[in-house]
């Protein structure tokens, strides 16, 4: 239902774009016969509804058409770019969790302490730095001044795993630093709430060590908001981190989107945008499943 509406919205939005594809391909001084011929070839002369249903039918069977500019099939183009975006997404999420979980747990456990204040304050400051500014700073310090890591470009897995990871480190750290404060704040307040629950008091009364209570009893029920927001982020990042991929010159899905926009390649644009929307809806579905795995109570309440 949501997907049908989404596909219709994408189709209409791009149909209504100014700037006809035929003009792009043939230039402004094209002869009328040529225009007519190309329109028939591309199927633009048919009515709107018919074209939408045709496009949707093909999209469902996994064919998003061919880019009239490069001749590349849209599905192939996305499949080609997807590994880069996925690798970046996984790397960045792992780093973000690695930063956010320990800090969030400490801050939540010592809520109101000076340590909590320092961590929360630092997170507040980092939150005010936009992606592209943070990325730029990291490039300046670690690539230009210190020369530890490459500033831009992507090395595929096939040319060495280590170099591939190195090429993605700066972009992943940028993304992780932007997302970690959000995760940290969510986890902090949820942990602090959970620690006031009776079952924590029971665990303490049993004489269990504090670290055990934190890790085994408190972390799991406190991770719901974290997982929700992470799901939203992952859904977005599958569609490529547009800014990060542009800044670091990574050939991911986000780059593909920007290229399609600047070249006015509407067939490609439609396909990529539809892919991003579907990926987002799909990931959110997975997040709902993850709730049930983490806390079986959700399943019983839901059904």
């Amino acid at each position: 239902m949501v997907l049908a509406g989404l596909s219709l919205a994408i189709f209409l939005m791009l149909e209504l774009l100014p700037g006809n594809l035929v003009d792009v391909l043939l230039g402004e001084n094209a002869r009328p016969e040529d225009i007519k011929l190309l329109e028939t070839q591309l199927g633009i002369d048919k009515p709107l509804v018919e074209r939408y249903l045709h496009w949707l039918g093909q999209a469902v069977s996994g064919d998003l058409g061919r880019s009239p500019l490069s001749g590349e099939a849209v599905v192939d183009a996305i499949a080609h770019r997807l590994p880069v975006s996925l690798q970046l997404m996984v790397y960045a999420q792992l780093l973000a969790l690695l930063i956010a979980i320990p800090l969030g747990m400490i801050a939540g456990y010592r809520e109101g302490s000076r340590l909590d204040g320092t961590i929360t304050g630092a997170a507040f400051g980092v939150l005010a730095v936009p992606h592209f500014v943070l990325g730029l700073l990291l490039i300046l310090v670690f690539a230009i001044w210190l020369g530890w890591l490459p500033a831009t470009g992507y090395v595929p897995w096939s040319e060495g795993v280590w170099n591939s990871i190195r090429s993605l480190t700066l972009p992943a750290v940028t993304l992780a630093l932007v997302e970690a404060p959000v995760y940290m704040r969510l986890l902090r307040s949820d942990i602090a709430d959970t620690l006031r629950e009776p079952f924590i008091a029971v665990a303490r009364a049993k004489g269990l060590p504090e670290w055990y209570i934190l890790l085994r009893h408190a972390l799991r029920p406190s991770s719901f908001s974290l997982i929700t927001v992470m799901g939203i982020n992952i859904g977005h990042l599958i569609g490529g981190a547009v800014i990060i991929e542009t800044l670091f010159a990574l050939p991911g899905v986000g780059r593909l989107l920007i290229e399609a926009i600047t070249q006015r390649d509407y067939v490609m644009l439609q396909g990529v945008v539809l892919f991003i929307g579907v990926a987002f809806v799909f990931v959110n579905l997975l997040v709902d499943v993850a709730y049930a795995v983490l806390d079986p109570r959700v399943m019983r309440h839901g059904t």
């Binding site: 989404l6 977005h236 547009v242 989107l257 920007i258 926009i261 945008v273 929307g277 987002f280």
Partner: peptide, 12 residues
């Protein structure tokens, strides 16, 4: 439907 979209891509 609007929220099901990365907001930056939408604005873009």
């Amino acid at each position: 439907a609007m929220l099901a979209f990365p907001s930056l891509v939408f604005a873009l």
